[in-house]
Design a protein around this nucleic acid. Structure first.
Lengths: 349, 349
DNA sequence: GGTTTCCCCTAAACCGGTTCAGGTCCCTTC
DNA sequence: GAAGGGACCTGAACCGGTTTAGGGGAAACC
């Protein structure tokens, strides 16, 4: 059976009509067979699929989109300063994880990078108005995040990375990062540190304030004072500034817990620049375990995040929501402390 | 003139038919007016646009896609190990640059992250078969890059980042990075270095081998021997390994030129770990000027790349190609050396 | 005055699928 | 033996735009 039996086939693409004609059925039935819908005799179905295969038919995504009102794509809108974005490898690994789920199913990922929050909401509206995506990922949750009511109003399926602090109609894919912070503080306390500071991320962002709270609580649990906390915006430069302020104070901390790795790495740099030895004079810990963490000196003691796993879980959850109309929250294994060389016992004073 | 004159408008979206009816013209004419095509009386055109605005009509992207056979989206396929990808901020900044051009025009970016080269080509084929994108960006050019004939065969418009070493039907957006390498070597030679090594990127990748060649030539120009070259795959871990090998050799170099910043940063880490002082015992330079470069200690002397500008230029070029059918190559300003603290005169031996 | 030309516009086909109201045919059921 | 019920299938409408053949009328030309 040569697929080119009909010798005068034009160069244009094969359509559902060609398949229907060749298989001796109606267009509608081909569509039914393709979409695994009931009401097609098994042998007819297999004949249709065989003919489709022989003709090399690929259903037109555009036509499917128009009539089925789906777009077969998911969206991700990143509202970050490109500089901050660039230095945070979390996001690319997350994407890779998402992709492992989407690609095999013929789904695409639409990515937007926007400079600020206003543009961000506008971008979601445009995505919906254009019917560009069937659902979106919500990363970097903020307090009272305006995206949640916005997306709810737009009726766009979404999944949140982390549990929002407000009523949300969307499933959440969470990872307990407080555990990692607690482990970090306990580790430092066990080493003998008492003056431990925290370089926190933006308090407007949920993971920023959550880690900060976890830090304070862990300090109390360890029988220490609350510990000095400096708030930043998670950026490398802010991390560097915060470190400088801490280390130049009259009574500097002997250990600093950073809310992410890029800041911690900048922290090591600043300490060295100031002639403060790491870890002898100050211990430093990070959060995320980015690849750099293993290769700076001293290697960074940090908390391992698993962005690839997150991406996979988030994609699977979002797809389930889109397909079945509902989906449960997912709780990923808690982030764990990874001990390397940047934290040790404090020098005897 | 109230736009809700027709009080029983259903909740469904406004279509071109609604606009046509309200404006008292045919669907076709509305389409003509929308697309700025000749043959519409100026006053009719403005009336149509006014009615469209009043009704809040947004043409359906899906319907437009189907009938016009365009998708109003561009694609980017990244074939890298997620780990390497994650540590390289180049890519995110590039995306941000691309986005500044696409977003205002209502175009979207479809992103794929694939694990290997085979999947990569397959992904392009799928993108074309699905009509997902109107054109793609080709980054990380390789020698005899198989993507170029592949895309040419698929007749998918593309733009290459850098000039390929083979016949290519696509416009190229280039930046002269050899100049930066030459400047680096000259800088080191001027400081008095004679034993300069190069930790090169993958020779399979054009920018890898180009920087390497530039290094060798610059060494000759400076009247030095060819200099030791270690090839890597651009990854942080490979950069660390290479550094270790160089520094543990009987006669280690007094300066190392790295092909990118992540490797250079790992290089600083390894040196410190080995007790080799930077820059007193070994000078280190990088390439790209990622944000980290400013914040490690000592701050990295490196060559400034401008990924955001690249992204913008590449997007503009690709759009011109798609719209006019042809587009010229673009030559961006050469990358320049940025002097910081990681390179200094060698210690007197 | 008739033909040509040009401009503005309409009607209908078209893109390539999905969906749904029915129409056969055959097998039960009473 | 007529009515009822499924299983399988068809035909046509539909999604919402773009495109093209051609119609009508006014101006221009011969």
């Amino acid at each position: 059976m040569d697929s080119s039996t009909n010798s005068t086939r034009p160069a244009s693409r094969v359509t559902i009509a060609d398949v229907a004609r060749e298989a001796g059925v109606s267009k509608g039935l081909v569509s039914f067979a393709l979409n695994d819908r009931p009401g097609v005799a098994p042998e007819t179905r297999s004949r249709i699929l065989r003919v489709a295969g022989a003709l090399g038919w690929t259903p037109s995504l555009r036509a499917r989109s128009l009539s089925s009102k789906r777009s077969f794509a998911l969206g991700l809108v990143m509202a970050r300063d490109p500089e901050v974005l660039g230095s945070d490898p979390f996001f690319t690994s997350f994407l890779a994880g998402v992709e492992t789920i989407l690609a095999p199913q013929g789904l695409a990922l639409v990515l937007s990078v926007v400079p600020d929050e206003t543009t961000e909401l506008q971008t979601y509206r445009t995505l919906v108005a254009d019917g560009r995506v069937d659902g979106v990922f919500l990363t970097d949750l903020r307090h009272d995040d305006p995206r949640i009511p916005c997306l709810a109003e737009l009726a766009l399926p979404a999944v949140t990375l982390g549990r929002p602090d407000q009523a949300s109609p969307f499933p959440a894919v969470c990872i307990d990062d407080t555990h990692g912070v607690a482990e970090t503080v306990r580790h430092l306390a066990d080493l003998g540190h008492t003056r431990i500071a925290h370089v926190a991320g933006s308090s407007g962002m949920l993971h920023g304030s959550r880690r900060r709270t976890a830090f304070t609580e862990a300090m109390r649990d360890a029988g220490l004072d609350d510990g000095q906390v400096v708030e930043t915006d998670f950026s490398i430069s802010a991390g560097a500034d915060a470190t400088r302020r801490l280390l130049e104070a009259p009574l500097p901390p002997t250990a600093i817990v950073f809310a992410n790795d890029p800041m911690a790495i900048a922290g090591i740099g600043v300490a060295q620049e100031l002639g403060v030895r790491v870890p002898e004079d100050v211990s430093i810990t990070g959060f995320d375990d980015i690849e750099f963490a293993r290769y700076v000196y001293p290697a960074l003691t940090t908390v391992g995040a698993t962005p690839l796993v997150w991406g996979r879980a988030a994609a699977a959850t979002l797809l389930a929501l889109i397909r079945t109309g509902r989906s449960d929250d997912v709780e990923l294994p808690a982030a764990r402390l990874i001990i390397r060389g940047s934290a040790s016992a404090p020098a005897p004073s």
